[in-house]
Design a protein around this nucleic acid. Structure first.
Length: 345
DNA sequence: GAATATGATTATAA
DNA sequence: TTATAATCATATTC
């Protein structure tokens, strides 16, 4: 029966009467001694509450005074006790989260574009892939290509600089908070686990900032890429000589305007364009000629006449016309020379 | 600035 | 895979 008062005064300070949670020896039970203690606690709490209002030196001095205060162990126990009661809610908030799919996507993209991967190869590989995807790799593309690479490496450099800055800031801040918590653990109960938890919270915050950086880097790469592809899409007319060579071939092979692979290569070389461009040109020419023979009649006659003259000259010189050979079969495109008034159906 | 020409791209069929 | 047809996007012409 009379055990209880002794328990209440135990060093753990677990109070059972009056205010729950407050140790008996800290509770005001009336009397001069009780009032004095109450005053002490009030002072300490007041000091804690106003500590942020003070200057650094003043705060240090107060901190020291607090640490040396005779009531400090008792207050520490109270805080321990309160903590014990709230620790459940803290435990609940602690969970391992799965990797963010959005972050993984961003990481993958940055790696694929050569921004976050190894220094050499990645960027040019991506550029080469982009070039290949948009058809033919001409010699005059190399300028655009290097421009693309230069801009990409610029993005890469900014990305890495910023990333490094963030990481450094994160580390500095983490160290600072850890030191602060360690320091505070002298005045209030802080377990290593809590420090760990705080560190992970900080890291989460910083990684969300990093994600923003990754996001904007990805956007920059996408814009650069689309500009690069758009630039490649920019049409530039072939020079007059190239067009003449292609037209000459087309009209002299009107019955079968399908140059073989070798013929295409030869034409490409002669015109200083790519084989793909030769293919494009013939594709366009065939369809446009077929759609409107009348419109092309004059052009066709001109080239036919020119070819005839060339052939005559060649035969008189005992050599063949300088035109890429191709299988020439009958029944191809109608020749306008013999269809003076025929219009496309 | 509209109309036209032209090289490139894309979807589809053979 | 290649050719065709439609379409896009830019260049050139009037």
């Amino acid at each position: 029966m009379d055990e209880q008062p002794r328990l209440m005064h135990s060093h753990t300070g677990v109070g059972m009467a009056g205010h729950p949670g407050l140790p008996q020896h800290l509770e005001g039970t009336g009397g001069a001694d009780g009032d004095g203690r109450k005053q002490d606690i009030g002072d300490i709490l007041q000091q804690i509450m106003t500590i942020t209002d003070q200057s650094l030196d003043e705060a240090q001095a107060r901190k020291h005074a607090l640490n040396c205060h005779r009531m400090k162990p008792a207050l520490f126990n109270v805080l321990c006790e309160i903590k014990e009661k709230t620790v459940l809610s803290i435990r609940g908030a602690q969970e391992e989260e799965p990797p963010d799919p959005q972050l993984m996507r961003l990481d993958n993209m940055l790696l694929a574009e050569g921004v976050s991967g190894p220094e050499k190869g990645g960027g040019s590989a991506a550029a080469a892939a982009a070039a290949a995807a948009s058809g033919g790799v001409g010699a005059d593309n190399s300028a655009e290509h290097s421009d693309y690479r230069a801009k990409l490496s610029q993005i890469r450099q900014i990305y890495h600089t910023e990333l490094e800055k963030y990481e450094q800031a994160c580390n500095e801040f983490t160290t600072h908070v850890m030191n602060l918590l360690r320091e505070q653990s002298r005045t209030r109960p802080i377990s290593p686990k809590e420090i760990e938890r705080m560190v992970s919270i900080i890291h989460r915050k910083f990684s969300s900032i990093q994600m923003q950086l990754k996001q904007s880097t990805c956007e920059a790469v996408m814009i650069l890429r689309s500009r690069f592809l758009d630039a490649r899409r920019k049409r530039r007319n072939f020079n007059k000589q190239a067009t003449e060579i292609l037209n000459e071939y087309f009209y002299s092979h009107l019955s079968n305007p399908y140059p073989s692979e070798e013929a295409k290569e030869e034409l490409a070389k002669k015109c200083a364009i790519t084989v793909a461009q030769v293919s494009n040109w013939f594709g366009n020419k065939r369809i446009r000629y077929k759609k409107n023979i009348g419109k092309f009649q004059e052009e066709a006659n001109m080239y036919a006449a020119r070819t005839a003259v060339n052939a005559a000259n060649a035969s008189s010189h005992g050599s063949q016309a300088n035109s890429p050979s191709t299988p020439n079969s009958a029944g191809g495109y109608p020749s306008p020379c013999y269809q003076s008034d025929r219009r496309i159906q």
